[in-house]
């Protein structure tokens, strides 16, 4: 209960900070919507030349892109802003303040900041998803929506854990390159069907660094191509990534030496 109250407190603080700069918030919202539009136009241009990509017709690629946008925004709201802060806190010796608090360090490092500017696009694309599915002639049952949500959340936990573990590298390498850029590039790769990859690359992106969880598996379950067993697989993968990231983080934390305070 205490953690839940802390979570909402942090969210409220981020919301208040974002609303202080309303024009900024408006500009970022507009830009986010604009880039989404551009992605759709890019796909439209490619489909001006071909009728399918790796066996996926235009409508299904659009579905993939809608789900990818929702996933991207989910991470941008709830996960990436806090993880972005970690390197800054370590580099400037401010991480001590987190260590001294009587709260789980992982929790505190993961909930300090929220990306409020992605909320509007997240809501908008979620609504678009429902209408788009209807247009495709797909009316998912409540159980299918549940499977979809669980797969989606598994993907979010997998990528949160992976990025959290990567943030641990900051304890060893203070001047690490821009991890946020790496996050973006990895997530971007999830826009396309995994079927474009072949051989080892396909195995790698399905099982080891499963970008398939970003949009591919959730889209597949909505299209009725995979069953509920993949939800179980998602839960197993999410647990493995979560535990592994905790072990890696604990190991890395031992190398932390306060920079200034």
């Amino acid at each position: 209960m205490r953690y839940l109250s802390l979570y909402f407190h942090f969210f409220r603080v981020s919301l208040m900070a974002a609303l202080e700069y309303r024009f900024n918030l408006l500009v970022w919202t507009f830009l986010n919507l604009f880039w989404t539009l551009l992605s759709f136009v890019g796909i439209e241009l490619l489909f001006g030349q071909v009728s399918s990509i790796a066996g996926w017709p235009k409508q299904e690629i659009f579905l993939l892109l809608i789900i990818w946008t929702i996933f991207h925004d989910f991470l941008s709201i709830f996960i990436r802003p806090s993880l972005r802060q970690i390197s800054h806190l370590i580099r400037h010796g401010k991480f001590d303040f987190l260590l001294l608090k009587p709260v789980s360090l992982r929790f505190l490092s993961s909930v300090q900041d929220f990306g409020i500017d992605s909320v509007s696009r997240f809501c908008l694309t979620s609504v678009i998803l429902v209408f788009f599915l209807r247009q495709m002639g797909i009316e998912p049952s409540l159980l299918l929506w549940l499977d979809f949500t669980l797969l989606f959340l598994s993907g979010a936990i997998i990528f949160y854990s992976f990025f959290f573990a990567l943030a641990g590298l900051n304890f060893w390498f203070i001047n690490l390159f821009n991890l946020d850029d790496l996050h973006s590039r990895l997530i971007d790769a999830g826009r396309f069907p995994i079927d474009i990859f072949r051989g080892r690359a396909k195995t790698f992106f399905t099982y080891l660094l499963p970008i398939a969880f970003i949009a591919f598996f959730p889209a597949q379950i909505l299209l009725g191509r995979i069953g509920s067993e993949w939800v179980v697989y998602g839960a197993v993968m999410a647990s493995v990534f979560f535990i592994a990231s905790q072990l890696f983080w604990s190991l890395a934390l031992r190398s932390y030496s306060s920079a200034s305070s």
Binding site: L46, V50, A189
Partner: peptide
């Protein structure tokens, strides 16, 4: 290069 590799895969599929 990672983004580049993904684009190469996309175009190979196309």
């Amino acid at each position: 290069l990672f983004t580049f590799a993904v684009m190469v895969f996309v175009f190979r599929a196309i």
